[in-house]
Design a protein around this nucleic acid. Structure first.
Length: 568
RNA sequence: CGGGGAGUAGCGCAGCUUGGCAGCGCGCCUGCUUUGGGAGCAGGAGGCCGGGGGUUCGAAUCCCCCCUCCCCGACCA
């Protein structure tokens, strides 16, 4: 490819608003341009990287028994109503209607379509297992897009769906996808960590996310360096002491004027926070009231609570709502008001006797509150957010937290979608059974963006060979260089090597800077000077300060193959 | 949605407080010179100053409304 034909020019300065280094370089290097919030055009360079990533995905999906299909991006709303997600999802899904007012949606993902296809195409156990996948645009009206392709609204996703007779089959395909994903990220050159994740509100029994650990990530991951425990904070647990062993004491009112927070409370009463409990008053989106209780020294993990009460999202109750159920903001507890809300108590708080809790009366608390005696919880469950330094649940060593970008996930769906959309098969024993599904996604653009964050230096991008837009960047300096370059390009391209040929009449400094910005693995330079010393100067992008060798034209292919592992 | 910030040439910015010719750097075009680390000289093109309304003799500048984009918090590949 001649650089003079490339669409898009490199920029000396990054446009405002591009905050992360990888995103800035992708813009400066003429890889992509923003069209609107969370919406991007891919220029030729990024498009080539995308296609290479996709090809790696196809390769690994196919060798895992997958078959590629292509499903629509516009779906009848009816389909999503059948699965229950039309109402469950909210404004994140783009909804519109056609000219006859039939409601449509833009695909966020394709479980419904796959289930609906399976309903017509799969009749017999003999046709299972199956794995279908496609690579296609998705639209999610994300409330807050950011960091370029790390979090876009329109994005390309590789999504695969497994169809099985039973959960044993699902487990097999799930495991296969787990390993395929590790190979995909490995081949692309992105370090990832699989972590256990929340299964969300659509049911499902197991989920893992593939995390690229980076400070710009939006997920918090809980890690144990000693035993390798790694889970999303949404589900992570730690080994926590369950409190003091002492017999329950008599309930006692205590005046605590102005003690609205745990900190003030423990100061006033001269007791540690772990001898208190705090009650959080929350409401579900369908306006069910929830009182969540955790020990005073711990933080509530809302994702865990939402999963217990099967709520999509939770909001704090208003002061008015809190008084309406007989409590007072700042002095709340389930004691005496527990029957007016769903009471969910963290298992550590439930096992801790004689805690100080709110009296549901302004300025008063209660001593020696005991769960089960003073109020009856509807659920006792793990509700606590893990924080740095807490002991690991498997080995007891201190945990640490890290930020990560979720670049892929695998998910055991079960039979929710197949039953909702009528995807049944006839089993060997003659009975009709629902197909057991799994789904497996990777964000292609997000993967590209993560690669840019991972592989760059102060001068520009630095692509791994497997995904580089071109293997070789050839700078031709001056008329002599330009004349000699033509033949070299032909040699390389005939050998199957992708060359980005800078045929512009730019000064050497401009060409070199652009080459470093664009970041192809090999840089070749041909000029009067290099020709005088016997050929073409060759160097690696990853070793800018390393020695550059002059290679005879006849030995170029060998040099490139040797230094990049490329087939020549 | 809540909080903070920004829209002026392709990109980066000044001008706005105190109303009076729309500017600077880079990039772009033409010519000459130059050719191993973002060249020099000369000449040039390019603007609904985000949009609408208002105040004023006069608005990029003051007032009101709207739109867009970015960043920080609740959600996802």
């Amino acid at each position: 490819m001649r650089m003079s034909r490339l669409f898009g020019a490199t920029l000396r300065e990054a446009p405002v608003g591009a905050e992360t280094p990888g995103y800035q370089l992708l813009l400066r290097g003429a890889y992509m341009r923003q069209l609107g919030q969370g919406i991007y055009s891919y220029l030729p360079l990024a498009w080539r990287v995308m296609r290479k990533i996709e090809q790696i995905m196809r390769d690994e999906m196919d060798s895992s028994g997958g078959i590629e299909i292509s499903m629509p991006i516009v779906h009848p709303a009816e389909l999503w109503k059948k699965s229950g997600r039309y109402d469950a999802i909210g404004p994140e899904m783009a909804r519109f209607s056609d000219r006859r007012d039939r409601p449509l949606v833009l695909a966020m993902t394709n479980e419904e379509v796959v289930a609906s296809l399976a309903a017509t195409e799969i009749q017999s156990w003999r046709q299972l297992p199956r794995l279908v996948y496609h690579i296609q645009l998705k639209f999610r009206d994300d409330p807050r897009p950011r960091a370029g392709l790390i979090r876009a609204r329109e994005f390309t996703m590789k999504d695969a769906y497994s169809l099985d007779r039973d959960s044993a089959g699902l487990n097999t395909q799930y495991e296969a996808m787990h390993h395929a994903y590790l190979r995909i990220f490995g081949r692309c050159g992105l370090p990832v960590l699989p972590v256990a994740a929340d299964v969300g509100m659509m049911g499902g029994s197991q989920a893992e996310e593939f995390m690229y650990l980076n400070a710009l990530g939006e997920d918090t991951i809980v890690l144990c360096d000693s035993c390798g425990y790694a889970q999303n904070r949404q589900v992570a647990r730690s080994a926590l002491a369950s409190g003091h062993a002492e017999p329950p004491l008599a309930l006692e009112r205590v005046a605590t004027p102005g003690a609205m927070t745990i900190e003030q409370l423990s100061q006033q009463l001269g007791i540690p926070a772990e001898r208190t409990e705090k009650a959080l008053f929350l409401a579900t989106s369908d306006n069910r009231f929830v009182i969540a209780v955790v020990r005073g020294d711990m933080q509530l993990n809302e994702a865990k609570l939402a999963s217990v009460v099967k709520a999509g999202e939770l909001r704090p109750m208003t002061v008015e709502e809190i008084s309406a159920i007989g409590s007072v903001a700042g002095y709340g507890s389930p004691v005496g008001v527990g029957d007016r809300a769903i009471v969910v108590v963290d298992e550590v708080a439930a096992a801790s006797p004689n805690l100080v809790a709110g009296a549901n009366e302004d300025g008063w608390h209660l001593r020696n509150v005991n769960v089960g005696r003073d109020y009856e919880p509807d659920h006792v469950a793990d509700l606590v957010a893990v924080t740095d330094g807490q002991p690991c649940i498997t080995c007891g060593e201190p945990l640490r937290t890290a930020r990560g970008v979720e670049v892929g996930n695998i998910f055991k769906l079960g039979t929710h979608f197949s039953t909702a959309l009528g995807a049944y098969y006839l089993a060997e024993d003659g009975t009709e059974k629902p197909i057991v599904m799994g789904c497996y996604g990777i964000g292609v653009g997000r993967l590209l963006a993560c690669l840019a964050e991972e592989h760059h230096d102060e001068r520009g991008l630095l692509w791994p060979v497997a995904v580089a837009p071109f293997l070789v960047h050839l700078c031709a300096i001056g008329d002599e260089g330009l004349a000699a370059a033509e033949g070299i390009v032909t040699d390389l391209e005939l050998a199957g090597i992708e060359v980005l040929f800078d045929d512009r009449a730019e000064r050497p400094g401009v060409q070199f800077n652009d080459a470093e910005l664009i970041g192809c693995p090999v840089r070749l330079t041909v000029s009067k000077r290099s020709l005088a010393s016997g050929g073409v100067e060759a160097g690696l992008r990853s070793d800018l300060d390393g020695k550059r060798e002059v290679i005879a034209r006849a030995d170029l292919l060998e040099w490139v193959g040797l230094h990049t592992g490329a087939e020549v």
